[in-house]
Amino acid sequence: MFIKKLLRSSNAALLFITIAVTLLFYIFNNNYLNFDNVRNILNSMSFVGVLSVGMTLLLIGGEVDLAAGAEACFSGVVVALLINAGVPWGLAFFLTVLFGALCGLINAFFINKLGFMSFIATLGMMSVYQGLVTVITQSKNIQIPEQGFWVIGSISLWNVVPLAFIIMLVLMIAYSVVLSNTNFGRSVYMCGGNRHAARLCGINPKKISTILYVNNGVLAAIAGVVLTSRMHTASPAAGSSGAIDAITAAVLGGVSFLGGAGGMSGCFIGILLLNVFNAGLTAVGFPSYWQIVARGGLLVLALCLDFIGARSRRLALERE
């Protein structure tokens, strides 16, 4: 039943592509699937993965946060400063998450109170955050000597599956349940699918949007903290492409850019494909600069697929 359902969904095709791409790279470079590299892929995946969970929710609700990467980076800096100031790392983590929520609240304020378009407000905030990070760090990395904090980013199951990946997976499963099984989750779809109709059902789209932005800020903070923990440093350049990567992954996985459609499983496969692809390019010896181009190209491709999908859905409707 489950398998049948999976095979019928568009995610199946994407999953096959992912497997095919993986095998292809494996053929070119047999080291591609060794433990170290797999762990690397899973690790780098988890950062964008956590970001894309928040982004997926926003996109389904018809919103977007271009500052997600900058928020994560800023959160990394905040946690580093707190720990280096002697705050126990657990508390520092918690405070950083609160900080992320605040970032989300600021976005929500501009969008829901002042009525800015979501992308322009978050774009403005992105440049504010980037600037603040540069001011605080003076463009230098902040080392974190506190070894206890390193744990989050460094332990892994059977030496292959890192904790960060497990965090991402747990978040994805949890949010997938929220999306399909709670009133809130369904409200998100309604807001993205037909805002006016949602209002007629007694849903307050501004409230939903605010929750989504705060939630996204929290997730960005978590992503930032986990990344910082793995690196043992907060870097002002970390996660600069986070928002674009998260959008790319989500849209690749079938989350419509126009809102109202998609889900977590697609987002997961999107992340997988994105990272397998990136790591694969490295493994077969492509210069890293090309990966930046490839990332943009992949986003265009994902959007094309989204466009074609939306059109074929519409045509199917017209035929009926």
């Binding site: 369904r186 779809y189 006016h196 109709a197 109202g260 459609a261």
Partner: peptide
């Protein structure tokens, strides 16, 4: 129509 196309009839 005021329906959400991606959601089920019951929803």
């Amino acid at each position: 129509r005021q329906l959400i196309p991606a959601m089920s009839v019951m929803e």
